[in-house]
Design a protein around this nucleic acid. Structure first.
Lengths: 116, 116
DNA sequence: ATTATATTTTAATACTTCATGAAGTATGGA
DNA sequence: TCCATACTTCATGAAGTATTAAAATATAAT
C-alpha cells in the first residue's frame, strides 16, 4: 500500500459524513446498502451523498455494483485492514506494545510467545 | 474517545507533511525532536512546520515541552492507540478476522487460541 | 415511445485549508 | 540592556473542498 493510498484513505475518513457512511456500510456487512438507503439513513441529499461516496470509492474504502437502476455499496474491509497495518507498522513503529491496548480490543490477546 | 477527536486525528494525518512529521516523531521515540530538527529533517520552513505541528498538537497526536528556547515534540502513542482502537472496533466491526492481516503485521501471530 | 425512478454529473457559490513573508514573543548570552 | 536564536502568530492570496439546484444518464415499467 503506497503512501498516496494511505493519505487518500485518511482524508476520506476525516470527514464526519463519510466516516458515518463507512461505519454504516461496515455494520451492513456483506449485504451492503443501496445509495438511496444510505442517503435516507443519514438524512442527506442524494447528490451530496453521491459526491461523498465517490470520494470513499476513489480512496478504495468502498466498492459498488449496479443492480438494475439501483447501486449497492459495500465497505472494503481488506483495504481498511491495509490502512490499519500501515498505521500500526509505521505510526506505532518499534513500540508495538504501546498499540497493544488497541489491538487487544479486537484481537484475541496473545497468550504466550512461542516463536520470534 | 469522541467522534470529534477521531475526525481531528484522521484529518491531521491525512496531509503528506504531517504524516511524515508524525512518523518521524514515532521513530525518534521517547527522546522526541526539537521543532528546528523536524523542520530541517523534512526540509520545510519553520513557520510552515509550526502551523502543521500545531494541527497535530490540537489533534492530540503529539505533545511538546519547552526546553530553554527550544521546543521538543513527541509522538503521543497512547492517543494513536486510541485512534486505532476506534477504527478497528467501529470500522472493522463484527468481522475482526478481516482485520487480522493488519494486526498480524505488528502483533506476534496468535499461535493457538487458548481461551475465548 | 413515454414516463417514472435511482443515481450521477455539472456548474455555481460558499467555505476551508495551505504555504508564505513579515512581524511578534520568549529565552539565553554578552 | 542589547542582540541573537528558536519558535510562533498574523495577514493574505492561491488552491482545494463542500453543498446545492438543475441537468443528465441509466434502467424499468406501462
Amino acid at each position: 500500500m503506497e503512501k498516496s493510498d494511505i493519505l487518500a484513505a485518511l482524508t476520506a475518513l476525516g470527514h464526519p459524513l463519510r466516516l458515518d457512511v463507512f461505519r454504516l456500510l461496515v455494520r451492513a456487512g456483506q449485504g451492503g446498502l443501496l445509495a438511496g438507503e444510505i442517503s435516507a439513513a443519514l438524512d442527506t441529499r442524494a447528490n451530496t451523498m453521491s459526491a461523498n461516496l465517490s470520494v470513499l470509492l476513489n480512496a478504495g474504502l468502498v466498492t459498488k455494483t449496479r443492480q438494475g437502476r439501483e447501486i449497492r455499496y459495500f465497505a472494503d474491509l481488506e483495504h481498511m485492514g491495509g490502512l490499519l497495518g500501515y498505521l500500526m507498522e509505521d505510526c506505532c513503529g518499534g513500540r508495538p506494545d504501546l498499540c497493544q491496548p488497541a489491538i487487544a480490543q479486537i484481537a484475541r490477546p496473545v497468550p504466550e510467545l512461542s516463536q520470534s
